[in-house]
Structure formats: structure tokens, C-alpha cells
């Protein structure tokens, strides 16, 4: 039984097989992502009511919160696939991890900028050392560290394993960092005027938020597949099947 599952995993995770399958999978993620995203935008901008406390400015939540969720989610995906790559020596998992990092960093960056754009009307300053923003900033640094290490090591296998280990160390650290930043923030509460409390969530506000979060996950799935396919082509460039495939393109 296990042998058969293992054989299946190995077959599916062979770069060649993955390349073929993933090409067919991308539209299945990309199209729903686009449809859901547009629908969530419509719901968020036109249907969701004005917040009685924050006025229209709260609509930034439909970008900010999904982006922040994604940045954490992608880090988890990255660490888990790096772990799989490290333990079971599955090359595909390493490629997924490497392909995820830039997307996650972009989401973290987006969460930070939208957070500060939201902060200006709420706090009167673009940057406040709020616990969530600070954690997000540190997460962005963790992404930068991962990408820097990945690109600094010449040998691809070594780079994958080393940066994979760093991602796992980062995951162990994230709860500790998160907790200490929260704690640090409550000590210096004077600095923050109002927290990013989710405005008393009306159901019409919650729906676009969740839809947007799902759209973002689908978007990530599509992009990570595209990126992983690039990695496959590049890393397997000396293989016969890649050469044959490229000549047809």
C-alpha cells in the first residue's frame, strides 16, 4: 500500500510529469481567481456598507487583510514544501518552495504598504509601531533572508537545502517573534491611538473579505505553478525532454 502511494508520489513529483500536469491545472486556478477577485471587488466596493466609525477608509481591509493572510500562508507552504524537499529529497518540493518566496514577499510588501495607507487616516501617521505591522515587517525580512540565501549559493541542490532549512528555522521562530512583538506592543500601548480592530464585522463586509482571501489563494496557486514550471525548465535544461519540448515552442 505504502509502496504504491510512494510510487505514485514519485511519479507525480517527477519534474517532467509535473510540467505536463501543471500546464493543464493553471487555468483551473487562474480563471476562478479572476472571477472571484472581480466579484469580491464589486462586493467590497459597491455592496459592503460604509463603516460607521472608519467611514470609507475601511475598504482598504479587503486588500490589506487578505494580503497579510497570504504572506503568512505562503511562508507556511514554503516551509512545509522545503521540509518535504529536505526529508524525502523531492526536487519538485524544493522548486515549489523557491517559487513561493517572491510571491510571499510581494504579499507581505502589499500588506505593509496598505497597512500604512490605512494607518494614515486612522492614526494620523503612515507608520505606527503596531504589533501586526511590525510582525509583518519582520516576516518580510525573513522572506528577504530566504531569497538572499537561495541566490547566494551557486550549487542549486545546496542552495535549495540550505534555504529550506532556513525556512524551517524561520517557522519555528515565527510564533516566538509574534508573541514577543505582541507583548512588546502592549507595553508601549501609548504609541497606538486605535488598533486595526476589525470594524464590527457586518456580514456584507465579511463576505467580500473571505471571497478576496479565496481569490488570493487561487491566484497564488496559479502563479506558483507558472513559476515552478519555469524552475523545471531551467533546472532540467540539459535533459532530453526539455530540449524536445523547447524546440516545439
Amino acid at each position: 500500500m505504502f509502496k504504491r502511494i510512494w510510487a505514485w508520489i514519485q511519479k507525480f513529483s517527477s519534474p517532467k510529469h509535473f510540467y505536463r500536469i501543471s500546464g493543464k491545472m493553471i487555468p483551473w486556478f487562474a480563471v476562478p481567481a479572476a472571477v472571484l477577485g472581480v466579484y469580491a471587488l464589486y462586493m467590497g466596493l459597491f455592496v459592503a456598507p460604509t463603516d460607521y466609525q472608519q467611514g470609507e477608509s475601511y475598504r482598504i481591509i479587503f486588500i490589506h487583510v487578505p494580503a497579510a493572510w497570504m504572506s503568512m500562508f505562503i511562508y507556511m507552504v514554503m516551509a512545509v514544501s522545503a521540509g518535504i524537499g529536505l526529508i524525502w529529497q523531492i526536487k519538485l518540493a524544493d522548486m515549489i518552495a523557491a517559487a513561493s518566496a517572491p510571491i510571499g514577499a510581494w504579499f507581505a510588501f502589499l500588506a505593509l504598504v496598505t497597512g500604512s495607507l490605512w494607518g494614515k487616516p486612522m492614526w494620523g501617521a503612515y507608520w505606527v509601531w503596531d504589533a501586526r505591522l511590525t510582525s509583518e515587517l519582520i516576516l518580510l525580512f525573513l522572506y528577504f533572508g530566504y531569497m538572499a540565501l537561495q541566490s547566494a549559493i551557486e550549487d542549486q541542490r545546496t542552495a535549495d537545502k540550505a534555504s529550506g532549512l532556513l525556512a524551517i528555522v524561520g517557522v519555528v521562530n515565527i510564533p516566538i517573534i509574534h508573541y514577543s512583538v505582541e507583548w512588546w506592543n502592549t507595553l508601549h500601548q501609548g504609541a497606538t491611538v486605535a488598533k486595526f480592530d476589525k470594524p464590527s464585522m457586518h456580514i456584507d463586509m465579511l463576505i467580500p473579505l473571505l471571497l478576496m482571501a479565496i481569490a488570493a489563494k487561487l491566484f497564488y496557486a496559479a502563479i506558483v505553478l507558472i513559476r515552478a514550471r519555469n524552475e523545471v525548465l531551467y533546472r532540467e535544461r540539459n535533459r532530453q525532454w526539455v530540449k524536445e519540448l523547447v524546440e516545439k515552442l
Binding site: 540550505a162 508573541y179 507583548w183
Partner: peptide, 29 residues
């Protein structure tokens, strides 16, 4: 951990700080 990851990288000094400093934050706080 950081040094062992960057030991084979030439001029890994800045890289080392980049990957290690975020992990030092809880201790600092």
C-alpha cells in the same frame, strides 16, 4: 545556524546579518 548556512558563501557577512538579525528580535525585546 546562520554561519553554518553561509559558511561556503564568499563575503557572506551581510548575508549572515540579513538571515540572523530577524531571528534575534525576541531576545532583544
Amino acid at each position: 545556524i546562520g554561519v553554518s548556512l553561509t559558511v561556503a558563501v564568499n563575503r557572506g557577512g551581510v548575508l549572515l546579518s540579513l538571515i540572523i538579525l530577524p531571528l534575534y528580535i525576541p531576545i532583544l525585546i
